[in-house]
Design a binder for these strands. Structure first.
Length: 335
DNA sequence: AAAACTATCAACCGCTCCGGG
DNA sequence: ACCCGGAGCGGTTGATAGTTT
């Protein structure tokens, strides 16, 4: 924690008055009096321009500092205390999908802040780095820290016995974490698993990850997620639905649910259209839902690279609201 | 008992994005 | 089209509490 102090030049705060030297702002820890002032003001007046809030609440703080204090500490809906095991699992899983997008992860954990989650994750990684010191020393020159973190993430998931198979986990990491340019051997298998289906209207606009799941082989492939965990713990948001949804499709233990999801997809899916870079052509006989629903020809193999970084692939663009509005049985997180 | 070490977490910093003028 | 300011994000810092030596 930092000592409260005064600063004349408020670095990092672009408060107009501060920059003009019209006002000295405090930095460092918030006093109880400051907390009370901000809390009272926010409860009375609600959100607005943070610079105005800082001024009107009688605080010698920049708006940015007020915002941070409110979001991370004073907000009434904040959850206190340590993360529950479920929350930890969700964080680990979401991180494997989203990477260091703390705000997006926090958005899926009600009552938790991005700062909290970031701190939790960093301390967890530190612990792991300590326990795996030998592993760290074996990172080759060609390996990036990113690769190492991905490995660590995989290992965490393996230990926790969580949702995904390693294969699927790799796919999701590589698809969704735009910061990674993995050079691991998984890339080629990922390439071979990203399929783009032509000739079937309802699949024309599906992102490759979805198509990959549809295309899982008729022997069952690898089940993406544990369906019972999914339903017990609740999952929502604009990122996870797709894999969870397709696990439902592929879940042999609950064919009824799978069929229902398929129906919902056919009826409601309105995925954004993405232009895909087609590199090679493959023809794969697809056995949807164990092959009982007929074959689907996969015309194109989508090359894997930095697609997810560009305009075409951005997390959160999949419009599944319509779908989920109609799948009322999927619960929301609320620990 | 005290020094050293470690974990936690509040807060800062620099940056990007976006909307308004 | 450009500039400016506010909001928000992720990385980092550093104080403090707890633990170990």
């Amino acid at each position: 924690m930092r000592k409260p102090d005064q600063c004349e030049k408020e670095k990092g705060c672009n408060n107009n008055m501060v920059n003009k030297g019209m006002m000295k702002t405090r930095k460092g820890l918030w006093s109880p009096e400051e907390d009370e002032k901000l809390m009272n003001y926010m409860l009375r007046n609600g959100h607005g321009c943070w610079t105005d809030i800082a001024r009107n609440a009688g605080l010698q703080r920049c708006g940015k500092s007020c915002r941070l204090r409110w979001i991370n500490y004073l907000r009434p809906d904040l959850k206190r205390g340590a993360f529950s095991p479920q929350e930890q699992d969700i964080i680990i899983h979401l991180h494997s999908v989203l990477g260091n997008r703390w705000s997006q992860i926090a958005a899926r954990l009600p009552g938790r802040t991005d700062n909290e989650i970031k701190n939790f994750w960093n301390s967890m990684i530190k612990k792991r780095l300590k326990t795996n010191k030998s592993d760290v020393s074996t990172i080759s020159q060609n390996d990036s820290i990113g690769d190492f973190c991905v490995d660590a993430s995989r290992e965490i998931i393996r230990e926790h016995g969580m949702f995904m198979s390693i294969h699927d986990h790799e796919i999701m990491i590589n698809c969704m974490d735009s910061s990674l340019t993995s050079t691991t051997t998984t890339s080629s298998s990922i390439t071979n698993n990203l399929m783009f289906m032509n000739g079937h209207d309802q699949f024309d606009h599906l992102p490759p990850l979805v198509l990959d799941k549809i295309n899982c082989d008729s022997n069952g492939g690898s089940s993406l997620l544990n369906i019972s965990s999914c339903l017990d713990q609740g999952v929502y948001g604009d990122v996870l639905e797709v894999p969870y949804m397709f696990n439902m499709v592929n879940d042999n233990t609950n064919p009824e649910l799978g069929n229902r999801v398929i129906e919902e997809i056919n009826a409601n899916a309105t995925f954004d259209h993405h232009e895909l870079d087609n590199k090679t052509t493959h023809h794969v006989n697809h056995h949807f839902n164990g092959g009982s629903d007929g074959d689907i020809k996969v015309e194109e193999v989508v090359g894997f690279g930095n697609h997810w970084q560009g305009e075409s692939y951005r997390i959160g663009e999949w419009d599944l609201e319509g779908f989920f509005a109609n799948v009322s049985s999927i619960p929301y997180l609320d620990f």
